[in-house]
Design a protein around this nucleic acid. Structure first.
Lengths: 202, 202, 202, 202
DNA sequence: AATGAATGAGGCTTCATTCAT
DNA sequence: CATGAATGAAGCCTCATTCAT
């Protein structure tokens, strides 16, 4: 089901529409027309509009993550690489929400569905993060408070938790809009603690 | 018509809904329920959804402008005050659009209606700006190329033109989203020229 | 309740609106504005929109009938006077319907209400007709098959029945529109029989 | 799109409803129910209520014109044929408006849409008229002031202009209702001038 | 695999009518 | 008397979704 070229076509069409009109204002007709398919045909490849959206974001996220890995590696110091990778993930999340003009309500509805599909992507990301941490630790750049896999898992979990908390908070004070800057700052804070240079530790 | 408490109630309800759901996803039922009124009753106070939205933004803009004046005055140098006032106005515009998730289509539809209602607010803003300019000019901080009223009028006009141009540009390349940063930069550029310290002028 | 000047005002306003917009497209706001009264105030003087309409038509019909009497009397021969009076009544009915763009449905809904209010007007009309018949009969222009009052009553009844039948027929074949010409012809036919010159009767 | 049986069904249903209730009082529910379709389904075949109405009138007009051709040809003299064709077209217009109880407002709104769709029908009508003129001219019944095609075009244009002028005039004095009799008279007048017998011309 | 066709739900708007003051 | 205020019902229209073919 994954490498189906028609699916890709729909995802491409969906991506363009969601970015242009936002989630709510994108109609299945819009996507269908741009994909050269009848509106009804979309239901052969996806369960509903939500699933198309999730698949679009997931596909783009994968590309984003691939790029993010390269960018992270281009940073000089290991600690910098890790911090960059973690904060950039959150920034990306905020960008997607902004681009597709997802409302808090929609976001809260879609989020659980995301998590369901995220699993494998997550594993790959955690694994990459784990590698970064292991390398940094091996080079003596910093000293980890546990196995790289464990720390990677925890950092990743933290990063997601901070993201989700922004959404939850926005649900309570929606007039403030969604502000991910404090999440990014929080991520930075904890990353810094974990990645403190060895010699500065007590 | 202005100090009608029910009207205020509706505006308050509308404000919350628009901020939370965005313009498109806010239904008159939403607003009505939050205001404790039947959907149809809203039409007793406003002509239609658009008018409610415009009234909401106008009311909030007035509060924003009042605050902006104070903030502007708290800036040390006169030139700084003027520049702050002018660029902050544009930034505010972009924030409103972002917060209410206005699409380019909607924005282009609503803008003319705004202009219709804006008139008196405009006069007050221009007058404030004129005062700032006059004070700065009198203190010798900068030298104006004309009467303060005239320059204020021109700067204000420029600020609005830059705003509107972003909307127009977004109409042509909607996929790029609306980017007001260049408008703000533009505003800054022209403000700097007008507000060049006296002794630096050729 | 009858000679209330405010009532007259409303009727006047209603008359203009119904003639201009038709029954359906006339709103109570239209009538209220034209009468210088709030929409709700109309309900103090009339039970509902239908009643306003009926009262308007009734008032105009009274004026029409008064004029019709004069016109009828101006015809030379008694038989001509009677025939003119009877057919003109039907013609007038068709004109009102056309002017107010009453649909068959509306007409069928309003007709019973009309009949309710018509009673006294009817008596006056029948009495006038009866006088015409008596005069004609006395002058030997024609010979009546009964008392003038009875014949007047019968002719009047016939005239109304023919009118109503057009409406009923239009209900079954609405696409044909309402055509009162056959009703007028029918009226003419029966009037002629009743009003045959004495010497031509067998 | 033309020979779609469901479309025809809707047109049939619409025709009946519009004739029975008039344009305003016909609801899409009415049409839908009569066509055995859900109200929303109508939008699959037509863009909106206006388009259904236009399609209905256009279809009926085509039938009317076909019949009109036969009737025109059955008139003895060529001049009579032409005059009949031209005036009857206007009479038909007035009948449609009366039958569907189109208000001046609606008519003025719908007219431009009609013109858009009319084009091809027009060509066929003008061509028929041109043939009539050519035949009459060839038989010496009258002498045309130009090529038959040109004169046909002009007469047709005149006929439409007279129609439209009634609507425009009704817009200014709506209380007077729409009166096409002067348009018909006007058409007759000009037709007579063009169709003057050869020997009577100066 | 694809789609023509259909629809229920929901959104905006108008209007006759009601009612408390 | 008069009206400001409120509302239910109904109308037009859109759209995600379903289903038979």
């Amino acid at each position: 089901m994954k490498d189906n070229p028609k699916r890709e076509l729909i995802l491409q069409a969906g991506s363009e529409c969601f970015a242009r009109f936002g989630y709510d204002k994108t109609t299945l007709d819009d996507i269908g027309k741009r994909a050269g398919l009848n509106k009804a045909s979309l239901y052969y490849y996806f369960k509903n509009k939500e699933e198309i959206f999730i698949a679009v974001v997931l596909a783009e996220t994968e590309a984003f993550i691939a790029d993010l890995r390269l960018k992270a590696l281009s940073h000089g110091k290991p600690a910098e690489q890790v911090r960059f990778f973690l904060t950039e993930r959150i920034r990306r999340y905020s960008e997607v929400i902004h681009l597709t003009r997802l409302s808090v309500e929609n976001l809260q509805k879609l989020e659980p569905l995301f998590d369901e599909v995220y699993r494998e992507t997550k594993a790959s990301e955690v694994s990459f993060l784990s590698d970064l941490l292991a390398a940094g630790s091996a080079s003596g750049a910093f000293q980890l408070p546990g196995q790289p896999e464990t720390v990677a898992e925890r950092l990743f979990q933290l990063s997601d938790a901070l993201k989700h908390d922004c959404v939850r908070a926005a649900g309570r004070f929606p007039s403030a809009g969604m502000d991910f800057s404090s999440a990014i700052a929080g991520m930075d804070f904890w990353a810094n603690i974990i990645l403190k240079p060895t010699d500065l530790k007590d």
